[in-house]
């Protein structure tokens, strides 16, 4: 026969063995630490009221946990901190030097790249080029073009080509066109 008891709005079936020892043991730590719901608590109490073995298990675990909690170390022995600091110093020093070297190397490489770009720009800049009847322009030659094609120059830039020759500058095949105005 089942009886229903209402305890603080929680219903529990009295007289029914609702929790096995195995289930209780799975939750025993929660029970001891008080981390369970009101509903679960009623089932725990009900199980414990009829199970001597689990009551003993709870007492044993509670005592074991209490003993273990006292095993935590609150302070390190005097002198240990100084010893650790001294021992890690060479490692920290090496790490710092390494990171400094990496930063230095990165800066050097960035400077080298910047310098190269400046030099390349300077080399390719038409120093001393005078505007006149004859102007030299550079165009990248398409791979399919074997000879000079009228469309090769843009429409806004149609010139009569006097002569041309191919050149290789920085890995690019270029046509040097000598254009008559």
């Amino acid at each position: 026969m089942w009886e229903l008891y209402r305890i603080k709005n929680v219903k529990i079936k009295k007289g029914v063995k609702s929790m096995s020892c195995r289930n209780f043991q799975d939750k025993m730590e929660d029970y001891i630490k008080g981390s369970f719901s009101q509903h679960e608590g009623l089932y725990f109490d009900e199980h414990l009221s009829g199970c001597d073995k689990c009551r003993q298990r709870v007492a044993d675990l509670r005592a074991t946990l209490s003993l273990l909690q006292d095993m935590a170390v609150r302070e390190v022995p005097p002198g240990l901190e100084g010893r650790i600091v001294k021992a890690v110093e060479p490692v920290v020093h090496r790490q710092r030097n390494q990171s400094f070297r990496i930063r230095k190397l990165t800066a050097i490489m960035a400077s080298a790249v910047a310098l190269t770009l400046v030099v390349l720009a300077a080399v390719n800049y038409p120093w001393g080029a005078q505007p006149g009847p004859s102007t030299t322009v550079f165009h990248k030659q398409p791979a399919s073009v074997g000879r000079l094609h009228p469309d090769y120059l843009s429409t806004s830039n149609r010139f009569e080509v006097d002569f041309y020759r191919t050149e290789r500058v920085n890995g690019l095949r270029l046509l040097r066109l000598n254009i008559m105005e």
Partner: peptide, 17 residues
């Protein structure tokens, strides 16, 4: 324990990156 504590910090700082 003191030796392992010291070794732990050496390893931590060696690999902290």
């Amino acid at each position: 324990a003191a030796d392992v504590t010291q070794e732990t910090f050496i390893r931590i700082f060696r690999t902290i990156d």
